[in-house]
């Protein structure tokens, strides 16, 4: 099962976890990662822009890749767009498998790749001063390249 969503609304982590494990008894591991908007340097809000026609397609490719690389029973990727304030969740990645190594590795892979291979751009709105676009980080490229 593969579930990819791009939305402005918040997501329900417990409901998403239940959906991935419902009516199955072969899942021994469910790994979960939630990315949250941090209040760095007086940040008032983060605005996530994306390329609507391309985003879901890019995320689906990444999720399909994870399903091929690890013996997963399913995975979920939900990425929010629009204006988010500190403390709000931005992204959810879930990976389910019979054993934990596959679930944990797939979860890390999904996050590393969606940071570098999906068309999202973050703009930070400080409490004072002009908004600024977040620059890509070399560490994120290095993390994506290890897979």
């Amino acid at each position: 099962m593969l579930r990819v969503l791009v939305q402005e609304a918040p997501f329900d982590v417990a409901a998403e976890m239940a959906r991935l494990t419902a009516s199955r008894d072969d899942i021994g591991a469910l790994a979960s990662f939630t990315g949250i908007c941090r209040a760095d340097d007086g940040l008032a809000a983060m605005v996530l822009e994306h390329y609507p026609a391309m985003t879901e397609r890019a995320l689906t490719r990444i999720a399909e890749d994870a399903m091929r690389r690890w013996p997963l029973t399913g995975c979920t990727v939900i990425h929010r767009v629009g204006r988010l304030t500190p403390g709000e969740p931005i992204v959810l990645v879930l990976a389910a498998s019979a054993h934990r190594a596959a679930a944990l590795e797939a979860c890390a892979f999904l996050m590393d790749w969606l940071k570098t291979k999906a068309p999202f751009w973050k703009r930070e709105e400080p409490r004072e001063g002009a908004p600024r676009w977040v620059e890509a980080r070399a560490e994120d490229d290095a993390a994506a390249a290890r897979w």
Partner: peptide, 23 residues
Amino acid sequence: FATPDDPVRPGDEVAFFPPVTGG
């Protein structure tokens, strides 16, 4: 996603943007 050597043709939709920063 495309690289500088990839072909473009009339009728294509081509997007330009900075390096992505999602996640």
